[in-house]
């Protein structure tokens, strides 16, 4: 359970960003309780956890909007703990409404360069280039209120990238968008991140989002790190009970010799690890059946409790109230 892979392996290859024993308390509440975490150059690390777990605190400490109670923040091996936000060379994308309303999209993107006293012509060139990168090459003259939420977040991404920061910080950048745009922009962010090869910290409470885009996922709970690993490992081999519960839906199923056997030791099994209809299976009754498109989710009451089963949608599935059987998927 405590077999969690953390920083050491990363340190050998050099780290882009490192949190060392980072602690932040508000009064008696621990927002972060000793965080050790390192990002490798060019990787996208998703910091995942429920609200209030400390993930946003970690991001704000890295950006310099907050000061740690103890511990250090390093960027490119350099301790930046005492350096103000404006000198940290990070690029941040906020949840929403962070574009300056009096400036056009292009002026927003050029803002960081203006602060660095880059000439007007070069600013305009770079802004146009980045708007092109995020697919808004023709919207440079628009004001934020004339753009959709998704477009605004693209501009915010371009603005954060314009100064070629050493780290990109994403603070739940998709949470204010509707579902379809969210998936689109999620993939867009990943594409741009890979193209620019920029080290990225992506804070989110949405496990699907984290699993979809990240090179590695760090799961945070109550200010402590639960697990850091690739999405596949986190999903298939959760290090702790919390990770198993938080990342995806989990059944607790008594298993012996590859079969469900009441009274045996329980194992965690994902919904897609179970199936219905095998005559040798554990019998039960379908409580609810929810059509989710390609798959259908069944909740089946059995003698070992309620089991959640995801099966490929097909016409002959049992309906709610009908008897069925549950087995481990082959």
């Amino acid at each position: 359970m405590t077999d969690v892979i953390t920083a050491p392996q990363a340190t050998e290859r050099g780290t882009a960003v490192e949190f060392r024993a980072l602690r932040r308390t508000y009064g008696s509440a621990h927002a972060l309780d000793g965080l050790d975490l390192a990002l490798k150059p060019g990787e996208l690390l998703a910091l995942l956890g429920p609200s209030g777990c400390g993930k946003t605190t970690a991001l704000r400490l890295l950006a310099g909007f907050d000061t740690p109670t103890s511990g250090q923040v390093l960027i490119g091996g350099k301790d930046v703990t005492g350096i103000p936000a404006s000198k940290r060379d990070t690029g941040m994308v906020f949840q929403a409404y962070s574009l300056f309303p009096t400036m056009t999209a292009a002026e927003n993107v050029a803002f960081g360069l203006r602060m660095r006293r880059v000439g007007a012509a070069e600013r305009a060139r770079r802004a146009a280039e980045l708007l092109e990168v995020v697919g808004l090459g023709d919207r440079g003259g628009s004001y934020p209120h004339e753009m959709s939420g998704g477009q605004q977040q693209r501009v915010a991404l371009a603005r954060a990238l314009a100064v070629s920061p050493s780290v990109l910080l994403l603070d739940e950048p998709l949470s204010a968008l509707d579902a379809r745009v969210r998936v689109q922009l999620r993939d867009e962010i990943r594409r741009v991140q890979l193209a620019e090869g920029i080290t990225t910290l992506f804070v989110t409470h949405d496990q699907a989002e984290a699993l979809a885009v990240a090179d590695r996922v760090a799961v945070l709970n109550k200010g402590r790190l639960e697990q850091v690993d690739t999405p596949q490992e986190v999903y298939t081999r959760p290090a702790t009970e919390f990770v198993a519960e938080f990342v995806g839906v989990t059944n607790h199923v008594p298993v012996e010799d590859g079969r469900i056997r009441p009274g045996a030791d329980t194992r965690q099994v994902r919904p897609e690890g179970l199936t219905v209809g095998d005559p040798d299976g554990l019998s039960g009754t379908v409580l609810t059946s929810t059509f989710l498109g390609a798959v259908t989710r069944l909740v089946v009451t059995t003698e070992v409790g309620e089991l959640i089963v995801d099966v490929t949608s097909r016409p002959d599935l049992p309906a709610a109230g009908e008897p069925t059987t549950v087995t481990l998927a082959p």
Binding site: A63, F65, A85, M92, F100, F111, M115
Partner: peptide, 19 residues
């Protein structure tokens, strides 16, 4: 978040107010 975005992009308190 306007102030934070400005700071993040390198603006001082004064340049934030000014721009």
């Amino acid at each position: 978040q306007w102030r934070e975005a400005a700071e993040n992009l390198g603006a001082s308190a004064w340049t934030y107010w000014r721009h």
